[in-house]
Amino acid sequence: MTNAAPSPGFALRPDRFRGLWLLAVLALLAVLCALSVAIGTRDVALGDIAAALRGEVDTIAQAAVAARIPRTVLAALAGAALGMAGTIMQGVTRNPLADPGILGVNLGASLAIAVAVAFFGIASAQAYVWVAIGGAGGTAVFVYTIGSLGRGGPTPLKLALAGMATSVAFASLVLGVMLSRGDIAGGLHAWQIGGVGGATFARMVHVLPFLAVGFVISLASARRLNSLALGDETAAGLGERVAVARGLASLGAILLCGATTAICGPIGFVGLIVPHLCRLLVGVDHRWLLPFSALAGACLLIGSDIAGRILARPSELDVGIVTAFIGAPFFIWIVRRTRVRAL
């Protein structure tokens, strides 16, 4: 538990402004979904888009649109999951630097899948999800334990350093696994970058139950996260079982991270950027912050995917590369803004 409470600059916003921001974010999400379906390496006409939405795939242009639809849906689901998971991690740890990527959770899921594929021969999509969730959960516990050692407990900087060190170590281990198994190295390397290309509804079906449970648990934890934000002693005085509250909220985040990593690979910084931006819009009340983080995360990942297609035409950049370009400067800004000095 750290003493890094949310910045007082993020004041609670009146309900009428929250409603306006909700409409604005929903409108932005609709626009980005439309652009994601329309923009790609091949130009398509409005008639081709309409035909593909009706299920007609008679031309190459219509086939291109049909391939972009599940890609857009996956980007929205993954962005929503990572945005909400980041908000929960920051709320549970009271750490403004918490993020599934920075805390090593995504890389833990990646390493678990790499080991399972290379040495245990797992091949089913459902097995991928279970392995990824196990790796994400184990890594979260490991990083929090390491970050809690020493004087001062789990300070924001100690958790961030422990997570980044774990991420580097796990990335090296994943590379070692790929080098030892050249027959699967190509597929693992492409997946390790993190992206939504090649998405299909058939692949998404296997992760939907886990995402659904993760979203429900996370949203149900909103009131508990508000209590935890007041401090452990105050939360306990209000009748909250602190360990149970923290464990349930963390379970929701782990389910969201593990399921997303299983199908997309490790995508970083979404869970760092989104909660901070959403606090500027709706304040620190998690009953509003969590759903807003889901919507904003979907917008960010869809927008990053569109940017990756435009910047590298006629090829494309994986969305994990784009979010890294956006998130690294944002991470530096957060560190400087919060003036986290304790080791």
Rank of each mutant, 00 (worst) to 15 (best):
G308E: 11
L272M: 04
G327A: 15
V282T: 05
G268V: 07
G252V: 03
L28Y: 02
F120L: 13
I184E: 09
A160N: 00
V31W: 14
L255F: 08
P8G: 05
I267K: 02
A51V: 10
I113Y: 00
R94T: 05
L20T: 08
V319M: 11
Q90F: 02
C264T: 02
L77Q: 06
R151C: 03
A249L: 00
F119D: 15
G187V: 12
V44K: 04
N3H: 04
G47D: 12
V284F: 10
G187R: 14
G303S: 07
A125L: 15
I193T: 04
D15F: 09
A136F: 01
L289W: 01
L251I: 11
I69H: 06
A11C: 02
G86S: 12
A5P: 11
V270C: 05
R336D: 11
I310W: 08
I332Q: 00
G239Y: 05
G214H: 09
F269L: 05
R16H: 15
S167Y: 01
S124I: 00
F119H: 14
I302P: 14
G176E: 11
E316L: 09
A61V: 11
L29S: 13
A245Q: 03
A75G: 09
G247L: 08
I310Y: 05
I113S: 00
G320N: 13
R341D: 06
R203K: 15
L208S: 01
T59E: 08
C33S: 13
N95R: 14
A63K: 00
L173N: 14
I332T: 01
L188G: 12
R71P: 07
T72C: 10
L188P: 14
I326W: 15
G268R: 06
P96G: 06
G271Y: 07
A123M: 06
G86W: 07
G55V: 03
G320T: 09
G101D: 03
P70H: 03
R241H: 13
A328G: 09
S293N: 01
I326V: 15
A249R: 00
L280I: 08
G91M: 04
C299F: 04
